[in-house]
């Protein structure tokens, strides 16, 4: 694309096509165009079948007027032959054409905003869960601190008792044993508190699971997946939920047909192949408008999704459907007007 074919390349190509030698091809090209230029200098118009007509104009800025052969011109303009000049309605103003472009941009920004909101809400939920967990931890630490303090105090009292009364060691023993018993009782309380917390969290988890199960009454396999997805955020981070959601989505997605834009493969050629009519290229564009910009400047190598014909009501035999596609083309081109 946009390359310049030199004389050498041209003669090689000609020899390949015609089966003649490169020297013969070179000689032919030289002689052929020498004859034309001679005729032009004599003021004659030269008409060549399948190539076109050359005529001298007499103007110094454009001395030769070239009119390509009808068949050749049509073949070169092949990607755009399906289009026709269309009269625009009076109702479509320039502002409306600009608005069309703006709406497209706004839609995209709205989608982004919604996604951000969803993300922020999920992060808020996660933060709440974390804070409750922290609260639990705090209570746990406070309990352990109390236990430690009590342990220290008991040891102090024991020391005092030991230093003051040596003879009454036997009497001290029961005191120590009583204090130790208190400590073990506190530890027991702590364990029971932990057990209580675990029980409460399990009950909450089961209750939420039950609620989700009621909200999404799908078949058993799917509901199980969703319950797992919804339960995980309460116990773990968001990464796990994302991956599980993705796997659930991939199972549901249908088979998608894709095609690649080439140097000579355009949306129109794809439309003709898949739908039997060039005009339906607009729906391929519509399906991929997020990755495609100006429909005339799509880079070769771009992979596009071919939508199902039923999705947009594509029917080559229905003249209304074809007309709709042509009107859609006007809408698509509108934002790219100069």
């Amino acid at each position: 694309m946009n390359e310049k074919i030199s004389f050498q390349q041209l003669s090689e190509l000609l020899s390949e096509i015609t089966g003649s030698s490169v020297a013969t091809s070179e000689l032919f090209i030289k002689e052929f165009f020498a004859v034309i230029s001679d005729a032009l200098t004599k003021g004659e118009t030269v008409k060549i079948k399948k190539l076109g007509a050359f005529s001298p104009s007499g103007m110094p800025d454009k001395p030769v007027i070239y009119a390509p052969d009808e068949e050749l011109a049509e073949a070169i303009n092949m990607p755009f032959t399906c289009f026709e000049a269309v009269e625009l309605n009076d109702s479509i103003s320039d502002d409306a054409l600009n608005e069309c472009n703006n709406e497209h941009q706004n839609k995209q920004s709205n989608i982004d905003f919604e996604q951000e909101n969803e993300l922020s809400s999920t992060t808020e939920e996660l933060e709440q869960i974390e804070t409750t967990e922290e609260g639990q931890n705090n209570t746990e630490t406070s309990i352990t601190e109390i236990v430690k303090i009590e342990q220290d105090s008991t040891s102090d009292t024991v020391d005092e008792v030991v230093t003051k009364i040596d003879e009454t060691q036997e009497t001290c023993k029961p005191i120590i044993s009583e204090e130790v018993l208190d400590v073990t009782e506190d530890e027991g309380e702590r364990k029971s508190l932990l057990g209580l917390w675990i029980c409460i969290s399990l009950i909450i988890g089961l209750f939420i699971g039950y609620l989700i199960g009621n909200i999404y009454p799908y078949d058993t396999t799917k509901t199980n997946d969703i319950e797992i997805v919804k339960d995980i955020p309460l116990l773990s981070d968001s990464i796990a939920t994302d991956s599980t959601v993705e796997t659930a989505d991939t199972i549901a997605t249908p088979i998608v047909i894709t095609d690649t834009i080439g140097k000579t493969r355009f949306l129109t050629t794809m439309a003709r192949q898949y739908y039997g009519e060039m005009s339906f290229w607009v729906y391929i564009y519509e399906e991929n408008k997020d990755i495609l910009g100006n429909p005339n400047r799509i880079k070769p190598g771009t992979i596009v999704i071919i939508p199902d014909a039923e999705k947009y009501g594509i029917d080559k035999n229905d003249s209304l459907s074809v007309e709709r596609a042509k009107l859609k083309a006007i809408e698509i081109y509108a934002p790219y007007q100069k």
Binding site: G52, P68, I76, F80, F83, A85, E87, L88, I330, Y333
Partner: peptide, 11 residues
């Protein structure tokens, strides 16, 4: 009246 002229490649 306004006419929308489609793109084209001319030689």
């Amino acid at each position: 009246k306004r006419m929308l002229i489609p793109p084209q490649i001319s030689l």
